[in-house]
Write a protein that binds this DNA or RNA. Structure first.
Length: 198
DNA sequence: TCATTAAAGTTAT
DNA sequence: ATAACTTTAATGA
């Protein structure tokens, strides 16, 4: 968790409920709030000129949404929209900065979160720069698998649809599906009930 | 080889 | 039922 929930409540954070499809913020909006997911999933995305979606990231419980933008005077570079029923803590930017000044020390959690974000961007850029679809998909799966303890093969059930995996790696769905099939044959992953085990 | 288009089958709401 | 997702196949860059 980025910031302790009770600490957030103590400085005036409120819980907001969101339904699937609801928008938290849109590309170009001015960042005015700190958001932290209690429950549910949120995706950060962009749309290309031709309308093709690129998913920057899919976030879950405990993660902040767009918090890195609170420190600079720039509009949001992505949209944030809700994938599943969500409970999200919302705190005004002012209160967020008051929290930063407090001696309780939220800085470690926040720094860790920002660091993780930079690391994620680095890994994804590295892998997504590869012309080989399997490399991109493996990069994606390896990163998300790294958060679970169990490192043994096929112990990680990929929590994304093929569509989402394609949008996260800049591939078209069909290519992603084909590459996944090939990887199954090569015993890199298993498919059980359409779920990918990596 | 990958993207695109089309078409059809499957799952979820 | 309808929308969203998955899969296969054909075509072209």
């Amino acid at each position: 968790m980025v910031i302790d929930e009770n600490l957030l409540y103590s400085v005036g954070a409120e819980v907001k409920h969101y339904q699937p499809g609801e928008i938290i913020f849109t590309e170009g909006d001015t960042p005015l709030y700190y958001f932290q997911i209690i429950e549910g999933n949120v995706k950060l995305n962009n749309y290309s000129e031709e309308g093709k979606e690129f998913i920057q990231n899919i976030l879950g419980p405990g993660q902040g949404v767009g918090e890195s933008l609170l420190f600079i005077e720039k509009p949001y570079p992505t949209n944030a929209l809700v994938l599943t029923d969500c409970r999200i803590l919302k705190l005004s930017k002012n209160a967020f900065f008051i929290l930063l000044e407090m001696p309780n020390g939220i800085s470690m959690g926040l720094n860790r979160s920002l660091s993780e974000h930079v690391y994620y961007q680095c890994i994804m850029l590295r892998n997504n720069s590869s012309p080989n679809p399997a490399v991109r998909l493996k990069g994606l799966m390896s990163y998300f698998k790294s958060f679970q303890q169990n490192e043994s093969p096929f112990s990680f059930q990929v929590p994304f649809t093929r569509q989402q995996m394609a949008s996260l790696t800049g591939l078209c769905v069909e290519t992603a599906i084909r590459a996944i099939k090939v990887m199954e044959k090569e015993n890199v992953l298993k498919i059980k009930d359409r779920k990918i085990l990596y």
